[in-house]
Design a protein around this nucleic acid. Structure first.
Lengths: 203, 203
DNA sequence: GTCTATATACAGATAGAC
DNA sequence: GTCTATCTGTATATAGAC
């Protein structure tokens, strides 16, 4: 790409990192410009407002999320896929210890002020939720899939908050065996009723 | 109390509400002063800095939390007590829809900047966690109590985040039967091993 | 396209009359 | 104790030379 795109990319990357570590409101455009090695006045050539820069960050986070979802989707069994998601959180646990879940903290901070930023952050969490729900459907959980997905994502988000608040990576790490056992239990309890319900096709 | 205390109380109440609905950084002292019907310049007679006002808010939240814990403690069985906590969240679900869990959102926002505010917010969540852990100990869950408490609190915090993000009170409302069944399952699975473990005294 | 200098707005905090 | 007026710093955003 051209040099102009490089600067734009650098600004979005710097903003993405700083919004996560310091939060949206505490991060100044001067901080972002410095981190990206771009003079402050030049930022406005690429982004008219701080909000439009934040929107670009949300677009980038969305692209990265869907790449991750695709990667986890490669797992052989549904359980493998769901645990790949959990493992991803564990691989990035130091980030979560320092600044919380990147998506969860965006939702918490941006949901309060409404507007397009709140919607964009909510969509990240919703896309995650829909993917998990799809996994449970592939498992044959039918109508329960939505609530199971909510419990799964809530468990990860809740444990990420505890991890961040108490600066303790072990909290997230312990979650993997816990969720693994929970998936088994959920699946086995469903197998009983599978005798009378049609098993859904894997998508 | 004297009139001077009234103003102080009004400022703390206004700050408590606004920090929750708008977040700490987005709330200005002018907003707080207006909400409390106190002239801006007079705020500094009671609180030298915005941070010291936030500390007073944390003290108030801590007092209120411990009052709530005592109220829930009146439940007859351990399950009643834990579900009283969940019911409390449901009773205040509209607040959570609008602004998230008061304690969880404080932790998320203040943990990033460290300092005494981060510690104060973390203590609120930790006190909650310790109370839940104590309940599980009273149930005879022994060494598992800590991790059960983490899962319990994480479930509530995670569901509060989803409730806030998706503006959907039903998410938190559905949690009560889910956790109720979970408590039963946990208790019954422990009853098996109670035959070989000493049952701990209720505190 | 780039970057310095600056306008504008508003935040936290203070001075000092009452 | 109270409150107006204001200081000071800093954030977003713009103007305009290069």
């Amino acid at each position: 790409m051209t040099r102009i795109q490089d600067k734009r990319v650098r600004l979005v990357d710097a903003a993405k990192a700083l919004f996560h570590t310091c939060g949206f409101h505490l991060t100044t455009l001067a901080d972002i410009a410095q981190e990206a090695n771009v003079p402050l006045g030049n930022v406005y050539y690429y982004f008219k407002t701080k909000e439009s820069l934040a929107e670009a960050v949300l677009v980038k986070r969305s692209r990265e999320l869907h790449e991750a979802l695709q990667a986890w989707e490669q797992g052989e069994t549904v359980k493998d896929r769901l645990l790949a998601y959990v493992q991803y959180e564990i691989d990035n646990v130091e980030q979560t210890v320092q600044s919380g879940c990147p998506i969860g903290s965006l939702c918490q901070e941006l949901a309060k002020q409404g507007g397009s930023l709140a919607d964009g952050a909510a969509k990240l969490l919703n896309d995650t939720l829909l993917w998990v729900e799809h996994q449970f459907q592939s498992m044959g959980m039918g109508h329960d899939s939505h609530e199971l997905a909510e419990q799964f994502v809530a468990a990860i988000q809740g444990n990420a908050l505890l991890t961040h608040t108490f600066k303790d990576p072990k909290i997230l790490e312990k979650l993997k065996p816990t969720l693994s056992a929970w998936i088994d239990k959920v699946a086995s309890s469903k197998n009983v009723s599978m005798q009378r319900e049609k098993v859904e096709e894997y998508a």
